[in-house]
């Protein structure tokens, strides 16, 4: 018997400082599934000024609104915005109503910009810095890079939404008290029930914003200009909103990604109207899936030339 229990690794490499440890030829300690850990990417984004500013503004906005309400002179002008104008009138009637108002004024634009920022900037900025090619040369598998980037961007988007609502709820409750949720469209809701409705509203909003996330992410992998991806997503969103105002388009409007963006108001009525919420969810999920699929398809095949 030769008695040899060890075989020499590939000739000429055995003496290397980091000889191969894997049949795939990878360096010692390298595993594709271990590359670009979620936490690392989360910290990478957290260190960026735009992340800190965006999240900070989410905390600041409810405070600004609260201070603005302190200037209320009591002249009760009719807001003239139909049944949902009551959201404004009732804004100071309790913490829940204050939170609802804050969401109401942020949902149509501010949150769209914030989500577009997190999801549109994430890949494009790496490309513009030139660091994307080094990540791919690590190598971080492209699908994994996209998945981690997307999950982190979504996590920050969700965090922004929760920070906005959480801060508003906290300072609103401290200032106006833990009161039932009021509106003219529904019976008064007890605080517990009201909080549940609020969470449902936040959930639906998060789903609707998936469209923005998808669009921004798709643009992010197709361009090297972070501003282009963020701005493009916001612009397209605004375009869709404008088209949605044109009733002459008829049934086509239901296919616009923004058509159901205000359906969350139905969650405030009694009983809850989920019809449009369900359709809005279908629309948002379908669009987001489409955009993300395109993003993955494009990114896993494209030549990185930046």
């Amino acid at each position: 018997m030769a008695g040899s229990t060890r075989e020499e690794t590939a000739p000429g490499t055995g003496g290397g400082p980091a000889g191969p440890a894997h049949p795939s030829g990878a360096a010692a300690g390298y595993r594709p599934s271990a590359t670009m850990p979620f936490v690392a990417e989360f910290r990478r984004q957290a260190s960026r000024r735009r992340t800190q500013l965006a999240l900070g503004f989410m905390v600041l906005l409810p405070l600004i609104i609260l201070i603005a309400f302190q200037f209320d002179t009591g002249d009760d002008d009719d807001n003239g915005r139909g049944e949902f104008g009551s959201l404004i009138e009732f804004a100071t009637s309790g913490g829940l109503n204050f939170t609802l108002f804050t969401i109401f004024v942020s949902a149509s634009f501010l949150l769209v910009v914030v989500v577009a920022l997190f999801c549109g900037d994430t890949v494009a900025s790496e490309a513009s810095w030139g660091s994307l090619r080094y990540l791919l040369a690590v190598p971080v598998p492209r699908a994994r890079l996209l998945t981690v980037k997307l999950l982190v961007a979504l996590a920050y988007s969700a965090l922004a939404l929760l920070l906005l609502a959480g801060t508003a709820l906290l300072i609103g409750t401290l200032r106006y008290g833990w009161e039932p949720l009021r509106s003219t469209v529904a019976a008064q809701l007890e605080p517990g029930e009201g909080l549940l409705r609020l969470l449902m509203v936040l959930g639906y909003l998060a789903v609707v914003l998936l469209v923005v996330a998808g669009l921004a992410f798709l643009l992010s992998v197709t361009t090297d200009a972070a501003l282009g991806a963020v701005g493009g997503a916001v612009l397209l969103w605004i375009l869709s909103s404008i088209l949605d105002q044109i009733t002459a388009l008829g049934a086509i409007r239901a296919f616009l990604p923004t058509h159901f963006s205000t359906a969350w108001l139905g969650l405030l009525s009694t009983p809850i109207q989920t019809d449009d919420v369900v359709r809005g969810t279908i629309s948002a999920v379908a669009y987001a899936t489409l955009f993300w699929s395109l993003a993955y398809y494009r990114f896993t095949r494209k030549d990185i030339t930046s």
Binding site: A18, P20, H22, S24, G25, A26, A27, Y30, P32, R44, S47, R48, R49, W129, G130, S131, L132, R133, Y134, L136, A137, V138, P139, P141, R142
Partner: peptide
């Protein structure tokens, strides 16, 4: 693209690419 064996290559291609804020 993405071969694990790339992990045995160190590279500087087309200039540096760093996160400017770090």
């Amino acid at each position: 693209p993405g071969s694990p064996v790339l992990s045995r290559i160190g590279a500087l291609v087309e200039g540096p690419g760093f996160l400017p804020h770090l």
